[in-house]
């Protein structure tokens, strides 16, 4: 299986490669359009600031490539947020797969949210063999509200989309590569889709 991890200079992507390695898979870090197109699975990571990440995607033409992909694609953290219509962070226009706008947490809670929180209302094979209220490691200041694409929820000052799905596109707000064995199981489920 060919697994492409989109490398557009956005943060800690080695961890995803290592997680795949622990599962017995090899992920290739790449920004090459052809290589990404030919992959069986595509992982779209991202940590950092939305507008500069989006700019990097535009600079490499990856913003046009991503919506044309037909194999399973998994956006992680900021990767998921960039797959939405847009985000309040730097008033950034997103790739527009998921029909929702990403907004900032209220200052009634600590921002960023950092730590382990639970996921619930789990839907689709992405969460196969994952129990309701399993803990996932999450770091975010912005979130996607609940919408038609929501396939998992997390409560931080109200429920938001912990995961989204539309057609072949999946997105998770938490970091499966940093969420212990259950997180690795979610990555494995994705690879088996």
């Amino acid at each position: 299986m060919k697994i492409a991890i989109i490398d557009y200079g956005a943060g800690n992507i080695k961890s995803i490669q290592f997680a795949l390695q622990r599962l017995g898979y090899k992920g290739i870090l790449t920004s090459d359009v052809k290589e990404i197109k030919l992959a069986d699975k595509v992982i779209f990571p991202g940590v950092g600031e939305a507008s500069s990440a989006m700019q990097k995607l535009r600079d490499s033409g990856l913003d046009n490539l991503i919506p044309t992909l037909t194999q399973p694609v998994l956006g992680i953290c900021l990767g998921m947020q960039l797959l939405c219509n847009g985000t309040e962070e730097g008033t950034t226009k997103g790739i527009g797969i998921f029909n929702i706008d990403v907004i900032k947490f209220s200052s009634q809670v600590k921002v960023p949210q950092i730590g382990w929180n639970t996921i619930s209302n789990l839907k689709t094979g992405l969460f196969s063999e994952i129990s309701e209220n399993e803990f996932m490691y999450t770091v975010n200041s912005f979130f996607a509200p609940l919408c038609d694409n929501t396939i998992a929820e997390t409560d931080y000052n109200g429920n938001y989309s912990a995961a989204l799905k539309k057609d072949n596109f999946y997105g998770v707000q938490f970091h499966p590569e940093k969420s212990g064995n259950s997180g690795e199981k979610i990555l494995e489920n994705f690879l088996k889709l």
Binding site: Q113, G115, W116, N133, D155
Partner: peptide, 8 residues
């Protein structure tokens, strides 16, 4: 559930 306290 909500965000949990961390032990580091």
């Amino acid at each position: 559930m909500a965000l949990t306290k961390r032990i580091i």
